Structure formats: structure tokens, C-alpha cells
Computed example of a mutant assay.
Amino acid sequence: MTIHIVLVSPKIPNNTGSIIRLCANSGAQLHLVKPLGFDLEDKKMRRAGLDYHEYADMQIHETWQAAKAALQQAHCTRMVALTTKLSHPFYEYDFSVQNAEDNVALVFGSETAGLPEDIRADIGEANWLRLPMLPESRSLNLANSVSICLYEVWRQQGFQGDKGQSTGYDNLVPFNPK
């Protein structure tokens, strides 16, 4: 089972670099959909990703349709759009999979414009999800949003592939600052 992260027209190289590092460390597949707001050799992006670029599984797509075709070919049986537009709470969505070959795709829009309406429509309103925020808040940082979502999906799937995979919380000692 693979989690696919899709960034549609990302604008800030530091965010994409951080997400590259996140994907390299979690085993997620990263998809970048053009146009990009930076050059892939951008110094800020490479610095934010440190030396993890070589460990990340990343594909670049010319269009959303090309990305969608690649996701379908990769057996992404669930595709969700992260958006603040009339969406459902992220934490109420069940990301567990019935079949080990089924994959999940999390689709994010750009930092400045969010996810375009036509892509949201293509994914379908039943699959529009949002992260909780205070009512007066506009949006979260893209790299933070991807991190929150990726780890929740991975948690729901039992952290498959984690090298230190835990069997539970039985041996935890409560924190006592005294």
C-alpha cells in the first residue's frame, strides 16, 4: 500500500523541498503537477529537502489529467481533495484499505490559490476534506498540511513499513515533569 501526495501548481520551493523530505522518510510517492512556481533546481527547495531528493519517489506531470492517469495506473482507489471549500472533516474519513494493492492519493492545491475548481469537481464533493482550523483562519502552510494528512493516513493503515513498528502503547511511561 502506498500513499500518493499530489501537489497541483506548488509555488513555494521551501514547502516542496520539505514535502520531498517527508515523502522520502515515509515512503509516500510524490506527484508534482505543472505549472510549478519555481525551478526544480531551486536552491531553497534543495536546501529544505536536504539530501533526501535522491530517496524520494517523485513524478512530474504536465497536467492534472496526466497525474490522474498515473494515479489510476498506480491503483489509487481513493482520491481526496484537501480544500476549505464546503468540505468534510479530514479526521472523519476512513483511509483503511481492504486490499494491499489499493492506494490512497491526497491532492493539494497551491499555497496561493488552493485547488482549482475543475480538479475539485473531478475528484467529487464527497471526497473534499478539510483540516480543522479556527473560523477566522484562512489556511495552513502547505508542508504542514501535507504532514498532518500523510501521518493520519499512515496511522490509520498501521504505519505499514515503519522500521520501528510498534505493537502498541502498553510500555509507555506517563510523563511526569516533577
Rank of each mutant, 00 (worst) to 15 (best):
R47L: 13
T112S: 13
A100Y: 07
Q165S: 13
E41L: 13
T83R: 01
L7T: 02
G37E: 08
V173S: 08
T2S: 11
R46V: 10
P13R: 02
M79H: 05
A56W: 00
H53G: 06
E92F: 03
E136H: 09
D51Q: 10
A121F: 10
D51G: 13
D39N: 13
N171W: 12
K163I: 13
W64T: 05
P13D: 07
N103A: 09
V173G: 00
R21Y: 10
A121E: 15
V146D: 05
I119V: 15
S145K: 05
M45W: 03
P13C: 09
H75A: 09
Y169A: 13
V97W: 06
Y91K: 05
G27R: 06
N15C: 02
H31R: 10
L32I: 03
N171I: 09
G114T: 06
G49A: 11
W154C: 06
L40E: 01
L7V: 04
L50Y: 15
M133E: 11
Y52R: 01
H75L: 07
Y55E: 02
N25T: 11
L30R: 01
Q59P: 01
I123N: 11
G17W: 06
L142K: 03
G37V: 11
I20R: 11
S145L: 12
P177E: 02
C149L: 07
A105F: 12
Q29N: 14
A100W: 06
E54K: 12
L140K: 11
G124W: 14
V8N: 01
P116M: 10
F38Q: 02
L129R: 08
